[in-house]
Simulated scan of single mutants.
Amino acid sequence: MKKFITLPSLALLAFTQLAIASTTSSSLSAADPTVTDGPYLFTQASSDAPRTAYWVCNSELRTTQVKALQLVSPNDCGQLPQPTLNPKAHDISADTYANIEKVVALSDVHGQYDILLTLLRKQNIIDKDNNWAFGDGHMVMTGDMFDRGHQVNEVLWFMYKLDRQATAAGGKLHLLMGNHEQMVMRGDLRYVHERYRVAGELLDRSYDELYDKSSEIGRWLRAKNTLVKINDTLFLHGGISSEWVERKLTLAKANDLYRKNIDRSKPELKQDELLNYLFFGNGPTWFRGYFKPGYDETELDNILSYFDVKQIVVGHTSQERVLGLYDNKVIAVDSSIKKGVSGELLLIQDEIFTRGLYNGNRVAL
């Protein structure tokens, strides 16, 4: 089994300090009697074999069989997701959409499942039973569901459910890949919550292997885009730098390269000039230039013109609220949900931008 934590040597000191602080109050192992987690579902060796779902119930590994696409948890296993499998979950969606009447966007949930549900419920994106209630609208999650928080798996299965429900209602869920999705998939596990050590030990898998391409959630994530254009708005995690324009990249090419190379190691990615740009530095999942003093708005105008959009919506760089910059040419939707206290979302309808507040109110951006 691979080690649960893999660390670049230069980050070791900082991580050690963080780990000491976190494990003092929450050190978990398979011997801890309090952990419930799951489900985890993997491809069977034989396509004819019944699929087995794995659950952690009070820190013991339990299994159930998948029947009629339904995952049902064992008795006495807490309030874990019990999802219905989606046969179309691994289909690749388009990266450009037009004539969409209403859009909602948010970002950087980082395992804060309860905050996510409350925000979406208060804003009538989901109903009281946590089912899709946004009709034919499109919802964009601009990355970073993984890491930091203690309910990442709950967030993932919830979004998996909304993906199916939105499509059935004539709407769409766009789950864009952020830098933390990319980090986990290539085995950079610096920010994984201690709770997930237990599942890794019991299943004899490192954390990244719980979501590898043999897993249901892993296959679903690997089919997703990293950038999407809806009407006259571009959505992504970090931001677009002028280097994108210089390279004459297209959404289709970039999304395809992300999907094909998501499992490659950092050294492998660094060896390729284009992949090094896409996955690191000034690439779309890491760029923070819009938020730095002295950023040249002319550069932004050139980028908007290149994509034929009026604004770019990004996460990644934390704010206290949904924030418009440069006369709303850039809209930041990382409202610090990761802190586990509250959050906001962005609503777009009839070219009107609205902040959806955590208490259910709405105010103009």
Rank of each mutant, 00 (worst) to 15 (best):
residue 258 Y to G: 06
residue 255 N to F: 04
residue 234 L to G: 00
residue 251 L to P: 03
residue 245 V to F: 03
residue 249 L to G: 04
residue 230 I to L: 02
residue 253 K to V: 13
residue 243 E to R: 15
residue 238 G to R: 04
residue 257 L to P: 07
residue 259 R to M: 10
residue 258 Y to A: 11
residue 250 T to M: 02
residue 227 L to F: 03
residue 254 A to C: 12
residue 250 T to W: 04
residue 244 W to S: 00
residue 237 H to M: 08
residue 238 G to E: 02
residue 231 N to L: 08
residue 231 N to C: 10
residue 250 T to R: 06
residue 248 K to Q: 13
residue 247 R to H: 05
residue 243 E to W: 13
residue 244 W to R: 07
residue 246 E to Y: 12
residue 227 L to Y: 04
residue 260 K to F: 10
residue 248 K to R: 14
residue 256 D to F: 11
residue 260 K to D: 13
residue 250 T to Y: 04
residue 247 R to G: 07
residue 254 A to M: 11
residue 231 N to S: 05
residue 231 N to A: 10
residue 250 T to D: 02
residue 235 F to G: 08
residue 230 I to K: 01
residue 240 I to A: 06
residue 246 E to Q: 15
residue 232 D to L: 10
residue 257 L to S: 10
residue 249 L to M: 09
residue 255 N to K: 07
residue 245 V to H: 01
residue 258 Y to K: 11
residue 241 S to P: 03
residue 248 K to C: 01
residue 232 D to F: 11
residue 237 H to W: 04
residue 230 I to A: 06
residue 260 K to N: 14
residue 258 Y to V: 15
residue 260 K to E: 15
residue 261 N to F: 07
residue 232 D to R: 15
residue 259 R to N: 07
residue 261 N to I: 04
residue 228 V to S: 06
residue 251 L to T: 11
residue 256 D to N: 13
residue 260 K to P: 02
residue 237 H to R: 05
residue 243 E to V: 14
residue 252 A to Y: 06
residue 229 K to A: 08
residue 241 S to C: 10
residue 227 L to D: 04
residue 252 A to V: 12
residue 229 K to Y: 06
residue 258 Y to P: 08
residue 233 T to F: 05
residue 259 R to Y: 09
residue 245 V to I: 15
residue 251 L to A: 12
residue 254 A to P: 00
residue 232 D to W: 08
residue 242 S to P: 02
residue 249 L to K: 02
residue 248 K to S: 14
residue 238 G to M: 05
